[in-house]
Design a protein around this nucleic acid. Structure first.
Length: 475
RNA sequence: GGCGGCAUAGCCAAGCGGUAAGGCGACGGAUUGCAAAUCCGUUAUUCCCCGGUUCGAUCCCGGGUGCCGCCUCCA
């Protein structure tokens, strides 16, 4: 049985899909007015782990991740009616949609780099305004929302369940504590907790017509509209960063349930944030790290992927270069193991898979899935792999043993996503050098053979001699 | 002020009532022509502190201390 920690109940709960064998999942995605940093990618790595795990467990998954291409209003320039996306666009001297397209592409490049499996839908906010208007109108009709001029606000007092997700139940919240909402906006609302469904501002570049006036949607409404469009009124899983618990997800629940009268989401999963070398990542502090920077510095994308996923998703993660180095070494061992198995399966001693090997693999498979079943316990699952690797490395595996183990690794790699996707090949010249060295070794000319080995090492090719012949890998 | 989370070896990190997984690093050994890779061994006696419950607590309860997230548009 799969169990997830539901933010709504703050407990581990058995995962019971609405439709047996299927899972509908909505992930809060990026706002595409800037580059996504390593912390953002940790959150996407988490959704990827979840998606891949559900796939492995045989679920027919429908995964939806929104792309927010309508900028959220920025506090400091609120008076100017400028939003983040538009401000960034103005700076870059391009159209907001051009900028959004640019960062969307960059976002996908980042996903590819970290081998994040693609969601089934990446709906864009600007393309679902009619669906948002439908919900807002419905809320107005029900008297759950109210108009202030051309704008529409949600009347939180009309939704008793408000606060169930975050625990922010009553009026204890310090109004305006985030200092992000301008005073004149606060003045428009009946209650500080009320939030915008539709905003009006003549200076805003991106605007749409709505029955109550021209303007643009509030932030929360897009997720209510798009999740409903692709997953229906009620769906299984909704994820996001922990910062989204309040207000974003709280407001989504209020909008969706207020409108449909049905339960919105069964399981809420939230990923904890990531600190960089012990500090909060903040552009203002200048300590923001992007995956592409790490790669430019020679770090392996697969190792970054492994590292980001190695810390349990609900655990705050402190990203350090030292820990990344450690994770890299671990991944390399695993990859080396995989590589040596391929070599073995091809050139090792003849023989079918031994019973004890098959049993070890079966046991590992069961333990691996059981670990992930328990709220995605990656650390436990990874330990299974290292335990297995150690015991198999101590044995003299036959071709059959190696092939069976490769099968296991291929299976778990559906979740891991670290094994090489393409066969690596060597340049003809390097190939010749290796043959030359083999010849030298046969005639015990170790001076010559070591010279060739050093020569290749300088080119980043590591040679490893084994009873089955020489094996190579790129450093 | 309100809501919530976390504190385990040099570093990363599981466990969450029965006496401390796993990875990295370090040290010692085996293997190897030498390497690389691999294997074996060593590396936590306050699991932040103080009380309590219990036959028994890293795990439960209470109180501290320290970090961290959120409080209307930051994953």
């Amino acid at each position: 049985m799969i169990r997830f920690h539901n933010t709504l109940s703050r407990k581990l709960e058995d995962f019971v899909p609405i439709v047996a064998g299927k899972a509908g999942m909505y992930n809060c995605g990026p706002t595409v007015y800037s580059s996504q940093h390593i912390g953002n990618y940790r959150a996407y790595g988490f959704t990827d782990l979840l998606r891949r795990f559900l796939d492995l467990r045989g679920f027919e998954v429908t995964q939806v991740m929104n792309i927010t291409d309508v900028g959220h209003l920025r506090d400091e320039v609120h008076d100017a009616g400028e939003d983040k996306l538009e401000a960034a666009a103005r700076k870059a001297k391009v159209d907001p949609q051009q900028l959004a397209a640019m960062y969307t592409q960059e976002f996908f490049d980042g996903l590819d780099l970290l081998r994040v499996r693609r969601a089934h839908h990446y709906p864009r906010a600007t393309q679902h305004v009619p669906q948002m208007i439908e919900i807002i109108q419905g809320l107005l009709d029900k008297g759950i929302a109210y108009r202030v001029g051309d704008e529409v606000y949600y009347d939180v007092s009309r939704f008793p369940g408000y606060g169930a997700l975050s625990g922010n139940r009553g009026d204890e919240l310090e109004a305006g504590a985030s200092e992000r909402v301008a005073d004149e906006v606060m003045a428009k609302k009946r209650h500080p907790r009320d939030f915008a469904l539709w905003k009006s501002d003549p200076h805003h570049i991106q605007q749409w017509d709505a029955p109550w006036g021209r303007g643009f949607p509030g932030w929360h409404i897009e997720c209510s509209a798009m999740s409903r469009t692709y997953l229906g009124d009620t769906f299984d899983i909704h994820t996001g960063g922990e910062n989204n618990i309040f207000p974003h997800h709280e407001c989504e629940i209020a909008q969706s349930e207020g409108f449909t009268g049905k339960r919105f989401v069964n399981v809420w999963l939230h990923a904890a944030h990531l600190n960089l070398e012990g500090e909060k990542m903040a552009k203002s502090e200048g300590n923001v790290l992007y995956p592409k920077d790490l790669v430019a510095q020679g770090e392996s994308p697969v190792a970054i992927r492994w590292y980001l996923q190695s810390v349990h998703y609900r655990q705050p993660m402190n990203f350090t270069r030292e820990a990344l180095k450690g994770a890299t070494a671990g991944v390399e061992r695993l990859l080396n193991f995989h590589d040596s198995l391929k070599h073995r399966a091809d050139k090792g001693p003849e023989g079918v898979a031994a019973v004890k090997v098959v049993e070890s693999l079966d046991e590992a498979r069961v333990r691996y899935v059981a670990a992930l079943d328990e709220d995605l316990n990656v650390a436990e699952a990874n330990a299974v792999l290292f335990d297995l690797m150690r015991s198999l490395n101590a044995m003299d595996l036959t071709r059959g043993d190696a092939a069976a183990t490769l099968g296991f690794l291929t299976d778990v790699d559906q979740v891991l996503g670290i094994l090489p996707v393409a066969e690596e090949s060597l340049e003809a010249e390097v190939e010749r050098k290796i043959q030359e060295r083999e010849a030298a070794r046969r005639r015990k000319d170790f001076k010559a053979s070591d010279r060739i080995r050093d020569e290749l090492l300088a080119k980043g090719i590591v040679l490893m001699d084994s009873p089955d012949g020489v094996r190579w890998r790129r450093k």
